[in-house]
Amino acid sequence: MLDDRARMEAAKKEKVEQILAEFQLQEEDLKKVMRRMQKEMDRGLRLETHEEASVKMLPTYVRSTPEGSEVGDFLSLDLGGTNFRVMLVKVGEGEEGQWSVKTKHQMYSIPEDAMTGTAEMLFDYISECISDFLDKHQMKHKKLPLGFTFSFPVRHEDIDKGILLNWTKGFKASGAEGNNVVGLLRDAIKRRGDFEMDVVAMVNDTVATMISCYYEDHQCEVGMIVGTGCNACYMEEMQNVELVEGDEGRMCVNTEWGAFGDSGELDEFLLEYDRLVDESSANPGQQLYEKLIGGKYMGELVRLVLLRLVDENLLFHGEASEQLRTRGAFETRFVSQVESDTGDRKQIYNILSTLGLRPSTTDCDIVRRACESVSTRAAHMCSAGLAGVINRMRESRSEDVMRITVGVDGSVYKLHPSFKERFHASVRRLTPSCEITFIESEEGSGRGAALVSAVACKKACMLGQ
């Protein structure tokens, strides 16, 4: 009897593995994704193909990295998701002549009506938060230079001027797309009239992360975010950046690689679950690469896999709870928690219980395998993109072996128990001629924006502006 049951459990697990095998990517698959990513990057950089390229390769006008001589107080704003952060950054000489960066910050959550109302409502709310922060720190009387981390696709015309191309991540505030974001912020500050600010720089969160990590390690020339969304930036040779005049030196390019796949480059790798996630998203047909990796989508992918296993009578005796059938019910943090389970399955059992399920031991094991399959594919897909960037940098610099540091931020990278190990191992397999160091950014977005502002202020002083 026991043997029969054991055989049935083994057969069930084997069927589960057959279904989950769809998520496995072979090294040849990853090399294919990497080569296609490089081709799209090239198209994004070139003037004649930029418009139709899915990977936009947006110039950021960040050319210099901090040298350690900029000092002063800077205000930093960070808008990239449902939370908005205001930070005071003091850049100065530390002990023994070292450079020191001290920060104080406060988080504000953005109400739904500000995210989806008008641009005026959104930026009025942001300036209200700045006003509140300055009151708390008794700094209303000071006109501070301000660095703005704005983590949406922007076409820069200068370091302090950028046109919002399109909202992502659930934002829909009308009247912002096609307009200068810094102008919208300046107008809102003017409307309030109770404080003055000098907006000197606007950067993407990947750029802010790279600059913040450069402060720790001067070989950091790539910034990457794996959180709600997924994106990367890197220092490109100016001669390859056709959208900006000049051939000397390097400029940081914001790849906006989340949109890779929007022209069909990933079609052969998309599964039924991916198509369902895409169809029910706020932007169907867009940001397809990001939807395979980002935390906004990972939990939902797992939920759809679990429903398939229920329908195949391989999980929960073929019956799903009402909660499990509800879109968004299986949160991405559950994926991390399930994979963090120590082996007694308590954590998995508790999560499934909150979803109205009474799982068996085998159910718990199957749910864990589903989570591992989805998150491992995410790590491997992400590795193909980064390997594409790094191999490109090595080739354009004609280096036999390139040493490089990548600064990384984002909740999936930082909080998932195995993502970074799987990701690092896969990147290294795909970049055999590179020695890569990964560092995690601390308060990256805010500190990085302030350091970019410090560079901009120093330049302005040198130019006598």
Rank of each mutant, 00 (worst) to 15 (best):
F148P: 01
E421V: 13
C252G: 10
L88W: 15
F195T: 01
C230P: 09
L415A: 10
L292D: 08
G117F: 03
L270W: 07
Q337V: 15
P111G: 08
S263P: 10
T149R: 03
A114H: 11
C461Q: 08
L270H: 08
L304C: 09
E435L: 11
E421K: 12
H141A: 03
L314V: 14
S418T: 07
G183E: 10
A329I: 11
F330T: 08
D160F: 01
L301Y: 05
Y61A: 01
R192Y: 00
A173K: 01
M393H: 11
V71N: 15
A384I: 03
R428H: 10
T437E: 14
D365F: 07
R303I: 00
C233G: 07
R46K: 09
I436V: 11
E52K: 11
R191W: 03
K142V: 07
H380I: 09
G343R: 05
E399F: 08
M235V: 13
C230M: 06
M37Y: 08
S76H: 03
K346H: 08
G72M: 06
T354A: 12
E177A: 00
E242P: 04
G328C: 05
D409H: 06
M235E: 04
K296L: 05
F23T: 08
L144S: 11
K136A: 06
V199L: 02
C457P: 15
D278C: 04
D274G: 04
L463T: 12
E319C: 12
V101P: 09
T49L: 11
G162I: 03
V154C: 05
E27P: 15
T49Q: 05
A456P: 13
Q98F: 05
K39E: 12
L304P: 03
D278Q: 04
D3M: 09
H137F: 08
N391M: 14
Q239A: 12
P111V: 04
P417I: 12
T405V: 12
A384K: 02
V182F: 05
R85A: 01
D247Q: 13
P145V: 14
E435Q: 13
T206G: 07
R394H: 11
V406C: 05
M381W: 00
Q287P: 08
G464V: 07
R394D: 04
K296E: 15
V181H: 00
K39D: 06
G446W: 00
K142S: 06
G246R: 04
R392Y: 11
L306Q: 09
M402A: 11
L307K: 07
K414D: 08
V335Y: 02
E237I: 09
M210P: 09
V91M: 12
I439W: 09
V412C: 05
M202Y: 01
S263N: 10
K90H: 15
V401N: 09
L315S: 13
R422T: 15
I189W: 00
L307C: 08
R369Y: 14
G229K: 06
D124M: 03
T255N: 02
L58S: 02
D217Y: 08
E290K: 08
E112Y: 14
F150K: 03
Q465A: 15
D42Y: 09
K458F: 08
Q26M: 12
T342Q: 09
S100E: 14
F23P: 04
C252V: 15
K104G: 07
A21V: 12
S109T: 13
T361L: 10
I404P: 03
V305I: 15
Y297Q: 11
D132N: 09
R333I: 13
V16N: 09
P284H: 14
M235C: 06
A176M: 08
R397P: 08
K169T: 02
K458Y: 15
Q106H: 09
R428E: 12
G294I: 02
I211N: 15
T332I: 03
L47M: 12
F330S: 04
G175K: 03
V412A: 04
P59Q: 03
Q286A: 13
C252Y: 05
D113Q: 08
L25R: 00
K296P: 03
A282R: 15
D274Y: 00
T405A: 15
K12Q: 13
E96Y: 11
R308L: 11
I126S: 01
E120C: 10
F123K: 00
G299K: 09
S280G: 08
V408E: 04
V241G: 00
